[in-house]
C-alpha cells in the first residue's frame, strides 16, 4: 500500500518543489462533506449533551428528535463519503506518514519561536503527518464508536425485550457518552489547529473556497495545464 514515493522522505529534506500556485485543493464534494459533517457534529454534540442533561438549552423531546434526524443524516453522509474516499483514492490521505514527532515538536515549540512548518502541503499531500493520524483516529475510532453505539441505542426497541436489555442500555449509553466526550475534545483541538495557519482564518478560508497556494513541481504544473484535472487560478 505504501511505496508512494511522494509520501516519503519529505520531512528529512524539504525539497524545493517549485513555484507556488493557487490551486483547488479541496473539491466541491470534499468541502460539502466537511462542512455538513461539521454542522451535524455540532448539532449532535449540542443535542446529545442537551438530552444527557448537561445543559438545559433545549428540551429533551426536541433534543432527541433533532439528535435522531441529525444522526441519520450523518450516517448517510459518512456512507457517501466512504464511497467517495475509495472511488477517488483520497483514502490514501489518511495513511500513516512519517514525521509525526517532528510535527508534534513543531506545535509544541517551533510554532512559538517562528520555525517553518516541517511539512509542505502538496497536491496529493493535503494533510501533515499529525493530521493524518488524528483523522485516521477519528475515522476508525471516535466515529465508529459513535455511530455503532448510536445505532444500537437508536434501535433499543428492537432488543428491549431481552433480559439483558437493562444492562445493555447502560453499557451502550456509557460507550456513546464516552465517545461523545472524545469527539468534543477532538473538535476543540481541531478548531484550534485551524487558527495556526499564516493567519488565524487562513485554513478556514481554504476549506471554504477550496483553494490554497501550494508549491507545485514543474511536472505537476505541466500536468495540470495539459489535463485541467485540477483547477488552478494562476
Amino acid at each position: 500500500m505504501s511505496g508512494h514515493g511522494n509520501n516519503r522522505g519529505q520531512d528529512t529534506t524539504i525539497k524545493k518543489r517549485g513555484e507556488k500556485h493557487y490551486v483547488m485543493l479541496y473539491t466541491r464534494y470534499e468541502r460539502f462533506w466537511h462542512w455538513s459533517q461539521a454542522l451535524l457534529i455540532f448539532t449532535l454534540f449540542f443535542t446529545g449533551f442537551g438530552l444527557h442533561g448537561t445543559h438545559d438549552l433545549i428540551d429533551f423531546r426536541t433534543a432527541v428528535e433533532i439528535h435522531t434526524y441529525a444522526a441519520i443524516a450523518l450516517i448517510v453522509l459518512w456512507i457517501f463519503t466512504t464511497f467517495w474516499n475509495f472511488t477517488t483514492g483520497q483514502w490514501r490521505q489518511y495513511l500513516f506518514k512519517e514525521g509525526v514527532l517532528k510535527v508534534i515538536r513543531f506545535y509544541a515549540y517551533g510554532i512559538l519561536v517562528g520555525e517553518p512548518h516541517p511539512y509542505r502541503k502538496g497536491l496529493q499531500r493535503k494533510q501533515n503527518a499529525l493530521q493524518s493520524l488524528a483523522y485516521m483516529g477519528f475515522m476508525i475510532f471516535i466515529g465508529p464508536a459513535l455511530w455503532a453505539s448510536g445505532i444500537v441505542y437508536l434501535f433499543y426497541d428492537l432488543w428491549s425485550s431481552y433480559s439483558w436489555s437493562g444492562n445493555g442500555l447502560t453499557v451502550i449509553a456509557f460507550l456513546h457518552t464516552a465517545a461523545a466526550f472524545l469527539m468534543g475534545i477532538f473538535v476543540i483541538i481541531h478548531i484550534y489547529m485551524t487558527t495556526t495557519g499564516k493567519t488565524p482564518t487562513h485554513y478556514i478560508k481554504t476549506m471554504i473556497s477550496g483553494y490554497d497556494s501550494i508549491e507545485l513541481t514543474k511536472a505537476e504544473v505541466a500536468y495540470i495545464e495539459e489535463t485541467h484535472a485540477v483547477s488552478m487560478k494562476d
Binding site: A173, F174, T177
Partner: peptide, 20 residues
C-alpha cells in the same frame, strides 16, 4: 436502571467535563 436524561455516569461525566 438507566434512563436517558435522568441518569449519567458519575465518574465518566467528571472525567469528560475535565477533559473538555
Amino acid at each position: 436502571f438507566y434512563m436517558p436524561g435522568r441518569d449519567s455516569f458519575h465518574w465518566l461525566d467528571i472525567l469528560g467535563y475535565i477533559a473538555l
